[in-house]
Simulated scan of single mutants.
Amino acid sequence: MNVWFTADTHFDHQLVAGLRGFGSPAEHDEFVVQRWNATVHPGDQVWHLGDVGMGRLARFAGVLRQLHGELHLVTGNHDEPWPGLRQAYQHQRAWLEHFASVQAFARRRIGGRNVLLSHFPYEGDHTEDDRASQYRLPDEGLPLLHGHVHGAWRRHGRQLNVGLDVSDLRPVHLDEIAAELDRPG
């Protein structure tokens, strides 16, 4: 089994599809599914670090069913079960039909070290202001895999962006993450 990390798929999201050079969300989603399934095998594990799609799950549930791998979700601000949304608890069950786990953050062991997983970086954003600061993990010295910043950076100190915009629109393998974390930041 291989382990992969990704973020910011933004299925059925008109604005992101256009920013990534696609004519429609359907065209974008089909391309991302093809890249994903050419990379990830059915028995692999994928940690999705949030912003799966735009709007209600029903809009892109069919896309999720096409993806290879056992999917785990660390929620992002566009995901219905994200705890920053008032009614998040009402969506957990539906999302667990597509994800083996749904959580606000996680910790994994990568390359012999503890690494935190969150949608949000410790600091920084793809906008001028750091949004959702009250939902960010504090930087207490551990490396952090995240999404949210789109193409703003790949690595920023201990923060490593695994979003599609900086990884050729495909998930990133555990070994690549370990190698990146071994490089001086």
Rank of each mutant, 00 (worst) to 15 (best):
N2W: 15
W4V: 09
W4K: 09
W4A: 10
W4Y: 13
F5M: 03
T6F: 08
D8K: 00
D8N: 05
T9A: 12
H10L: 00
H10G: 00
Q14P: 07
Q14S: 14
A17D: 00
G18A: 14
G21T: 04
F22Q: 00
G23Q: 11
P25W: 00
A26S: 13
D29E: 15
D29K: 02
E30Y: 02
E30Q: 11
F31G: 09
V32E: 03
V32T: 08
R35A: 03
W36F: 07
W36M: 03
W36G: 04
W36A: 02
N37A: 09
T39G: 06
V40C: 02
P42N: 09
H48Q: 12
H48L: 14
G50V: 03
V52Y: 00
G53F: 01
M54S: 09
L57V: 07
R59C: 01
F60V: 01
F60L: 01
F60A: 03
F60D: 00
A61F: 02
L64N: 09
L64V: 06
R65I: 11
H68Q: 15
G69V: 06
G69C: 08
L73H: 05
V74F: 05
T75V: 15
G76K: 01
G76I: 03
N77E: 03
G84L: 06
G84M: 04
G84N: 08
G84Q: 06
A88P: 06
Y89K: 15
Q90R: 13
Q90N: 15
H91A: 06
Q92A: 13
R93I: 14
A94C: 05
A94M: 07
W95P: 01
F99R: 01
Q103N: 13
Q103K: 11
A106C: 06
A106W: 04
R107I: 12
I110K: 00
G112F: 06
G112N: 10
N114I: 13
L116Y: 12
S118A: 14
S118N: 05
H119W: 07
H119I: 03
P121T: 03
E123M: 10
E123N: 14
E123G: 14
E123C: 07
D125T: 06
H126C: 08
T127I: 08
E128F: 12
D129M: 15
R131T: 09
S133P: 12
Q134M: 15
R136I: 11
L137V: 10
D139K: 10
E140K: 13
E140G: 07
E140M: 11
E140S: 10
P143T: 06
H146W: 06
V149N: 08
H150L: 01
H150P: 01
G151D: 08
A152H: 07
H156S: 13
H156V: 08
G157I: 04
Q159M: 11
L160C: 11
G163K: 02
L164A: 10
D165Y: 00
S167I: 04
R170I: 02
P171T: 10
P171I: 04
V172L: 11
V172T: 07
L174R: 13
E176Y: 14
E176C: 10
I177A: 08
L181P: 03
L181I: 05
R183Q: 12
P184R: 10
